[in-house]
Nucleic acid binder design. Structure first.
Length: 536
RNA sequence: GCGCCUGUAGCUCAGAUGGAUAGAGCGACAGCCUCCGGAGCUGUAGGCCGGGCGUUCGAGUCGCCCCAGGCGCACCA
């Protein structure tokens, strides 16, 4: 009966003592009504019809919050939803099959992936998983450039290393790639082709070096990504934008719209007309486009390919390019709001309390492959997903290697393995029906009434909401933190109560709780891309 | 100089849409296994949420100004 343009919302109070859900509606209304908020709350409560089956208590608290407490029965009965949905529990269709693309890693094949790429791989793949779980139709895409200056340098470096195998005095390019991996590629070339490159004409030999290096590097990039459980649907080659004329098309359109002009022999994008600080070169005086142009053309293709949601995952060093691309897209008539850019901050590795120095030039460069070798793929992914993406990440190698309770990965996985073990034990005692799906329908879940049991049930029921908020906010760390909480709640429950007891009915109810916990942990791990072991 | 990110317990970090008494892990200290996995659990200590001003019933959260650190600011990608 009040309409002050205020929406009635409920939220979960931070303090358990404040009930299960709460609303501040009375506080919001009080001002416009010129009444005491508690009096408004009282009016609202008096006018409400409550169902005693589900609602245990309604109370007005503090300055005028209305707190609701549900019955334990209300919660506990929802366990059957978890058990029925099983490996699909947590999935939703709110994404309505929206055609979505997540672009990440996108490193050019000029060297092995770094630990920074690893963070991006974990974030991108997990965001893709989250989108899938919320009902999006997801394409994982890797964009790369195998032309241009960097690749030329790679080719020349490879060629030089190859020549040095025959003649150590052969000069190495000044800005060449120093890494050992170039030497390895050269060795492989010699093994495959002998000295044939040595004899052939130089430009031709360099071309061969480039394609060989590219092939070998991509193979190793794909391998290391696969170790992390990351598989791309599409590898999009920037070069195709040139050969198909898409680049030229964009320039022409900008010109037609009066958004491009010539100056000093280069073509400039009139970015100032699009609300940006300064105009930018899109085609250099040499005739070569700057990175902006293909980026804009590429993003236009994303729209043309029908994506309704485009998620770009970039490292912090790419931040400057984003406004140009978004402005360009908008100028071409596309809705830039459909592009969500996730910027992640950098990673530092810590070993024995010391920062591990990482320099691409120097020899102490740590590759993603080496990191996985050292701590294993589960720890790598989990650690990369523990922190919010906008936060600098300190990766503690000692902790990640530790096989103990200190290590959060093991803590979560241990909870899962422990449940598996309990279920094996219960099965051994002949206490499990062969089909859990049928079993739980006959289980009296209202026998779960201890605080640790109820707390665990409530937390498990938060799972779908956690996925939604992680998915729509592009914040995987919410899920990571949540799973840690679930593990804690389970361990507490387990510590306080025996699952397998003399009373068959109680045992059945607790087994159901274990199974539901196992489902949530397993599904959560699946989204994070880590294993949920039955034993460890 | 300009832009983006960050600043919360000794350390590493959570705290979505402003809510009631600020959380976890590690580290420190003190405890808990005749019993389904101790890779577990319980307790103690530890905080002017970088500083200031503002917005409002209410700010770690929003705005402005400082301070400190990171990353950018090319006719490199």
């Amino acid at each position: 009966k009040y309409d002050a343009g205020i929406r009635l919302t409920f939220e979960k109070p931070r303090l358990e003592a404040h009930g299960d859900i709460t609303t501040n509606i009375a506080l919001l209304l009080a001002k416009s009504l010129g009444k005491n908020p508690r009096a408004v709350a009282q009016e609202i409560v008096s006018a409400m019809k409550i169902e005693p089956e589900s609602v245990a208590k309604v109370e007005i608290a503090g300055p005028g919050f209305i707190n609701f407490r549900f019955t334990e029965r209300f919660f506990v009965q929802q366990l059957s939803t978890i058990l029925t949905q099983g490996l699909d529990f947590g999935r939703s269709t709110i994404g309505r099959g929206k055609k979505s693309q997540v672009e990440f890693v996108s490193a050019n094949p000029t060297g092995p992936l770094s630990v920074g790429h690893g963070r991006q791989a974990a974030i991108g793949d997990t965001i893709a998983n989250l989108l899938e779980w919320t009902g999006h139709d997801v394409t994982r895409e890797y964009y790369y450039n195998n032309a241009g200056r960097q690749m030329r340098l790679l080719a020349e470096s490879t060629y030089a290393r190859y020549r040095q195998l025959f003649d150590p005095s052969f000069p190495f390019p000044e800005d060449g790639y120093q890494g050992e991996y170039i030497k390895a590629i050269a060795e492989r070339l010699r093994a495959d082709k002998g000295d044939s490159l040595y004899k052939s004409e130089k430009d031709e030999a360099i071309r061969l070096c480039q394609s060989a290096a590219e092939e070998i590097l991509f193979e190793s990039i794909k391998n290391v990504l696969a170790r992390m459980g990351v598989i791309f649907d599409v590898f999009y080659n920037e070069d195709s934008l040139y050969t198909s004329g898409k680049i030229q098309e964009v320039v022409s359109e900008f010109r037609a719209k009066g958004l491009a002009y010539d100056k000093d022999g280069a073509v400039w994008l009139k970015a100032t007309a699009l609300g940006l600080e300064q105009d930018r070169v899109i085609v250099k005086s040499t005739g070569e486009p700057t990175y902006r142009l293909p980026d804009i053309a590429y993003h236009r293709e994303k729209f043309r390919r029908g994506f309704e949601l485009v998620v770009d995952i970039f490292g912090a060093d790419h931040i400057a390019t984003i406004p140009d691309v978004l402005a360009g897209i908008k100028a071409l008539g596309y809705d830039a709001e459909k592009v969500r850019v996730v910027i992640h901050q950098f990673v530092t590795l810590m070993r024995d309390g010391q920062q591990v120095k990482m320099s691409k030039r120097a020899a102490n460069f740590v590759t993603l492959d080496e990191l996985i070798d050292e701590v294993g793929p589960d720890a790598v992914r989990f650690f990369f997903l523990m922190r919010s993406v906008s936060s600098h990440l300190e990766f503690d190698l000692n902790l990640a290697k530790e096989q103990s309770e200190k290590n959060p990965v093991y803590y979560v996985q241990y909870a899962h393995a422990r449940i598996a073990s309990i279920l094996r034990f219960a099965e051994g005692e002949g206490l499990l029906a062969p089909s859990p799906g049928v079993d739980h329908l006959r289980t009296d879940l209202s026998l779960l009434k201890h605080p640790e049991e109820i707390a665990l049930v409530k937390l498990l029921l938060d799972f779908p909401e956690t996925i939604e908020s992680a998915s729509f906010g592009y914040e995987p760390q919410r899920l990571t933190n949540y799973l840690h909480e679930v593990a804690t709640a389970f361990h507490k429950f387990y510590h306080e109560h025996r699952v397998v007891t003399e009373q068959r009915e109680v045992t059945a109810a607790r087994v159901a709780l274990c199974r539901a916990s196992k489902i949530v942990l397993a599904n959560g791990c699946k989204i994070l891309g880590i294993s949920a072991p039955e034993r460890m």
